[in-house]
Every structure is written in C-alpha cells, then in structure tokens.
Design a binder for these strands. Structure first.
Lengths: 100, 100
DNA sequence: TGAACATGTGAATATCTGTTCATATGTTAG
DNA sequence: CTAACATATGAACAGATATTCACATGTTCA
C-alpha cells in the first residue's frame, strides 16, 4: 500500500542520516555551539572543553568533511567557525523539541 | 577567554546530542518519513522497508522513548505516527542543508 | 636553518549501536 | 480456552565510532 514512491529518495535519506549523525555527538555539538558566535582556534576549543587537542582536531575534520564549519588560517593557528546559518537553525530546532 | 557561560547548558547539549542521534540512523529516518503522512502498523512498515519486524519494533521503541512518535492500538495492531510537526521540520531543515 | 609552537593524522582500543534469532506478551476469533 | 496473529523484548554478535597516544606536517621567528 505504502511504498517508496512520493517520498524522499532513499539515497537522500541515507545522506540525511549521515548528516544527523554528525550532530549526534556531544563533543561535536559543543564545538559547534562554541564557535557559533565567534571563530576559535583549535587549542582554545580544546582548552575550553578540557579535552585533548587531538580529539578536537579529529572532530573538526568530521565537521569540515560535512561542510558544517569554515576554516581560516592565521599564522600557526586555524580559526574555525560555523559555515552556515542552517547549522544554527538545525540546532535551534532540536532545542525547541527538547524544551517543549 | 571563551568559557561555558552564555551558552546552552552543558546538560542540554548532551540531551540534544541524544536527540540528533535518534535522527542519525537511516532505518529510523525512513520509518519517520514513512509515517509522516499517515499512521502505519508495525508489520506494514517492516514489509515496506523489507526489514525484520523485530528490527522495526526495536527502532520504534527508540522513537517512542524520545517522544518522536505516537502509538494507537487497534485490535492486534499498533499504529504509529509522527508525534509532532517539530519532527518534520527538523527533517526538512536537514534536507535543506543537503540540497543547498 | 633550527627550535618552538599549532594543528593534523594513523593505529590501537574500548565502548556503543543496529540487527538477528528466539521467544515472550498481548489480542482476537472460534 | 486455544490457535493464530501482531508486536515487544532479551541476549548475542558484528560493525561503527570516539578517544588516546605517538608522531607527522606546517608555520613563525630568531
């Protein structure tokens, strides 16, 4: 009765799941929130979250690969910021659901 | 310089990550999309997705626990539907990001 | 160039998570 | 009550994933 017609391409749903997977980790989420107002360098993020620089770097890569953050080099430091207002909105939507 | 003040409670970010985690699985996402227009019984969902009834049932439990779906009993069958328009909106936001 | 600093990355590991199988629970019809 | 059906659930297993450690890469400055 109800098959896969009239609904988002199945491939797209896999992509979508992958996108949400990125949001589904608290470290990445904390990073995103942290850099949502102003860009930050890797070490500063690590210190703020009291986590290994390496951990942050790994997660920033994931965020980069998913085009959720922008990077800018300034001397030795890499400054990360949110790529998009979409990202903020997705997070806000999620908040709304929790706060209902 | 940048500490945890002025940003969402850290506890809330963990909750939020948990919420997105739920969206971050293609099976659950497919279920949600599938029941977004009209409620469906467990077996019908399983057949549509060509997956074990057990798998669907397990995932429906996750969706229930996160208050993303509603259930209604009719005889032997349990009819599931999306709980909220929030849910749809979160999915749409994600789509937007992918389609940009 | 070389030392000091900032970031990136591969390998290893421990934990988490989705699926399956087998079975339990719950409902209806006879 | 019993058989047949629909759904739920626990245990087990395989695959995915986050973190750490050790080190590589890249940049600045003296």
């Amino acid at each position: 009765m109800n098959d896969d017609k009239n609904m988002p391409d199945i491939e797209m749903l896999f992509e979508l799941a992958d996108l949400f997977k990125v949001f589904g980790d608290s470290t990445r989420l904390r990073i995103m929130v942290m850099i949502s107002d102003s860009e930050m360098a890797v070490n500063d993020i690590a210190e703020s979250l009291r986590m290994e620089q390496s951990t942050i770097s790994h997660q920033l890569r994931v965020l980069r690969q998913n085009k959720l953050v922008r990077v800018r080099r300034e001397g030795k430091q890499m400054y990360y910021s949110l790529d998009d207002d979409h990202v903020k909105k997705i997070i806000e939507m999620g908040m709304d659901h929790i706060l209902e």
